[in-house]
Protein backbone atom coordinates (compact mmCIF):
# COMPACT_ATOMS: atom_id res chain seq x y z
CA UNK A 1 0.00 0.00 0.00
CA UNK A 2 1.19 3.44 -0.87
CA UNK A 3 1.88 5.76 1.99
CA UNK A 4 2.94 9.35 2.40
CA UNK A 5 4.91 8.42 5.49
CA UNK A 6 8.46 7.62 4.53
CA UNK A 7 10.86 5.52 6.52
CA UNK A 8 14.08 7.37 7.06
CA UNK A 9 17.19 5.62 8.38
CA UNK A 10 18.83 7.33 11.34
CA UNK A 11 22.35 6.10 11.93
CA UNK A 12 24.62 6.76 14.89
CA UNK A 13 28.05 7.84 13.66
CA UNK A 14 31.09 8.18 15.87
CA UNK A 15 32.72 11.48 15.12
CA UNK A 16 36.08 10.24 13.96
CA UNK A 17 37.90 9.94 10.66
CA UNK A 18 36.62 7.17 8.42
CA UNK A 19 33.36 6.43 10.19
CA UNK A 20 31.12 7.90 7.52
CA UNK A 21 33.18 6.12 4.86
CA UNK A 22 32.64 2.84 6.70
CA UNK A 23 28.88 3.31 6.87
CA UNK A 24 28.63 4.32 3.23
CA UNK A 25 30.67 1.30 2.21
CA UNK A 26 28.22 -1.00 4.03
CA UNK A 27 25.38 0.65 2.11
CA UNK A 28 27.29 0.25 -1.13
CA UNK A 29 27.96 -3.45 -0.47
CA UNK A 30 24.24 -3.98 -0.01
CA UNK A 31 23.52 -2.04 -3.17
CA UNK A 32 21.49 0.55 -1.32
CA UNK A 33 21.08 3.94 -2.87
CA UNK A 34 20.87 7.09 -0.79
CA UNK A 35 18.38 9.61 -2.20
CA UNK A 36 18.93 12.33 0.31
CA UNK A 37 20.77 12.66 3.55
CA UNK A 38 21.64 15.01 6.33
CA UNK A 39 24.16 14.92 9.14
CA UNK A 40 23.55 16.33 12.63
CA UNK A 41 26.54 16.47 14.90
CA UNK A 42 27.56 16.98 18.49
CA UNK A 43 31.16 16.92 19.72
CA UNK A 44 31.81 13.19 19.69
CA UNK A 45 29.04 11.68 17.59
CA UNK A 46 26.68 12.50 14.78
CA UNK A 47 23.33 11.30 13.52
CA UNK A 48 23.22 10.48 9.83
CA UNK A 49 19.69 10.69 8.48
CA UNK A 50 19.19 9.12 5.09
CA UNK A 51 16.37 8.49 2.68
CA UNK A 52 17.25 5.23 0.93
CA UNK A 53 15.52 3.24 -1.75
CA UNK A 54 15.00 0.19 0.45
CA UNK A 55 14.94 1.18 4.13
CA UNK A 56 14.01 -2.24 5.58
CA UNK A 57 16.80 -4.03 3.74
CA UNK A 58 19.28 -1.28 4.56
CA UNK A 59 18.31 -1.36 8.21
CA UNK A 60 18.89 -5.12 8.44
CA UNK A 61 22.22 -4.83 6.64
CA UNK A 62 23.48 -2.12 8.98
CA UNK A 63 22.29 -4.01 12.04
CA UNK A 64 24.13 -7.10 10.87
CA UNK A 65 27.32 -5.02 10.70
CA UNK A 66 26.80 -3.81 14.27
CA UNK A 67 25.92 -0.26 13.28
CA UNK A 68 23.26 1.42 15.41
CA UNK A 69 20.37 2.48 13.21
CA UNK A 70 16.75 3.28 13.63
CA UNK A 71 13.82 3.69 11.29
CA UNK A 72 12.17 7.05 11.73
CA UNK A 73 8.95 8.26 10.10
CA UNK A 74 9.32 11.43 8.08
CA UNK A 75 7.27 13.10 5.38
CA UNK A 76 8.47 14.52 2.08
CA UNK A 77 6.87 17.71 0.81
CA UNK A 78 7.18 18.75 -2.85
CA UNK A 79 8.12 22.38 -2.95
CA UNK A 80 7.19 24.29 -6.05
CA UNK A 81 10.02 26.30 -7.49
CA UNK A 82 8.86 29.77 -6.46
CA UNK A 83 9.19 32.08 -3.43
CA UNK A 84 6.89 31.23 -0.51
CA UNK A 85 6.64 27.50 -1.20
CA UNK A 86 8.35 26.56 2.03
CA UNK A 87 6.29 29.11 3.92
CA UNK A 88 3.02 27.51 2.87
CA UNK A 89 3.97 24.10 4.20
CA UNK A 90 5.61 25.37 7.38
CA UNK A 91 2.78 27.74 8.12
CA UNK A 92 0.16 25.02 7.73
CA UNK A 93 2.03 22.79 10.18
CA UNK A 94 2.55 25.63 12.64
CA UNK A 95 -1.14 26.53 12.62
CA UNK A 96 -2.02 22.89 13.24
CA UNK A 97 0.37 22.99 16.21
CA UNK A 98 2.68 20.37 14.70
CA UNK A 99 6.29 20.76 15.68
CA UNK A 100 9.10 20.32 13.12
CA UNK A 101 12.04 18.62 14.80
CA UNK A 102 14.31 18.92 11.81
CA UNK A 103 14.24 18.92 8.07
CA UNK A 104 16.48 18.79 5.03
CA UNK A 105 16.00 19.49 1.39
CA UNK A 106 16.70 17.56 -1.75
CA UNK A 107 16.50 19.01 -5.20
CA UNK A 108 16.92 17.42 -8.58
CA UNK A 109 16.38 19.18 -11.90
CA UNK A 110 13.15 21.13 -11.39
CA UNK A 111 12.03 19.12 -8.36
CA UNK A 112 12.61 20.15 -4.77
CA UNK A 113 11.62 17.98 -1.82
CA UNK A 114 11.69 18.98 1.82
CA UNK A 115 11.99 15.96 4.11
CA UNK A 116 10.72 16.78 7.55
CA UNK A 117 10.52 15.02 10.86
CA UNK A 118 7.49 16.14 12.79
CA UNK A 119 6.11 15.08 16.14
CA UNK A 120 2.86 13.82 14.54
CA UNK A 121 3.46 12.56 10.97
CA UNK A 122 -0.10 11.23 10.44
CA UNK A 123 -1.68 14.55 11.29
CA UNK A 124 0.99 16.37 9.25
CA UNK A 125 0.10 14.38 6.13
CA UNK A 126 -3.53 15.35 6.60
CA UNK A 127 -2.80 19.05 7.18
CA UNK A 128 -0.39 19.37 4.23
CA UNK A 129 -2.80 17.46 1.98
CA UNK A 130 -5.60 19.90 2.79
CA UNK A 131 -3.40 22.77 1.60
CA UNK A 132 -3.15 21.09 -1.78
CA UNK A 133 0.57 20.64 -1.39
CA UNK A 134 1.90 17.44 -2.95
CA UNK A 135 3.56 14.84 -0.73
CA UNK A 136 6.11 12.25 -1.74
CA UNK A 137 4.82 8.70 -1.51
CA UNK A 138 7.08 5.88 -0.35
CA UNK A 139 6.79 4.12 -3.70
CA UNK A 140 8.44 7.08 -5.40
CA UNK A 141 11.68 6.67 -3.41
Amino acid sequence: MMSNIIKQLSIFVNNEPGRLAHISSVLKECNINMRAFNLAESTEFGILRAIVDNPDEAYDALKLKGIIAKKTDVIGVYLEDHPGALFMAADALGKANINIEYGYAYSYKDKAIFFIRVDDPVKAVEVIGKQGIKLVSDSEI
Binding site: F12, A40, I68, K70, R117
Partner: peptide, 21 residues
Protein backbone atom coordinates in the same frame (compact mmCIF):
# COMPACT_ATOMS: atom_id res chain seq x y z
CA UNK B 1 34.61 8.85 30.22
CA UNK B 2 33.65 7.17 26.99
CA UNK B 3 30.67 4.89 27.17
CA UNK B 4 29.13 2.58 24.64
CA UNK B 5 25.48 3.10 23.98
CA UNK B 6 23.06 0.18 23.86
CA UNK B 7 21.50 0.03 20.35
CA UNK B 8 17.98 0.45 21.71
CA UNK B 9 19.00 3.62 23.53
CA UNK B 10 19.79 5.42 20.29
CA UNK B 11 17.37 8.19 19.41
CA UNK B 12 17.06 10.02 16.13
CA UNK B 13 16.45 13.15 18.16
CA UNK B 14 19.70 14.99 18.92
CA UNK B 15 18.20 16.72 21.92
CA UNK B 16 17.31 13.37 23.51
CA UNK B 17 20.85 12.14 22.90
CA UNK B 18 22.38 15.22 24.49
CA UNK B 19 19.99 14.87 27.42
CA UNK B 20 21.10 11.27 27.88
CA UNK B 21 24.71 12.38 27.84
Amino acid sequence: IQVELKPEAFSDNMENMLKLR
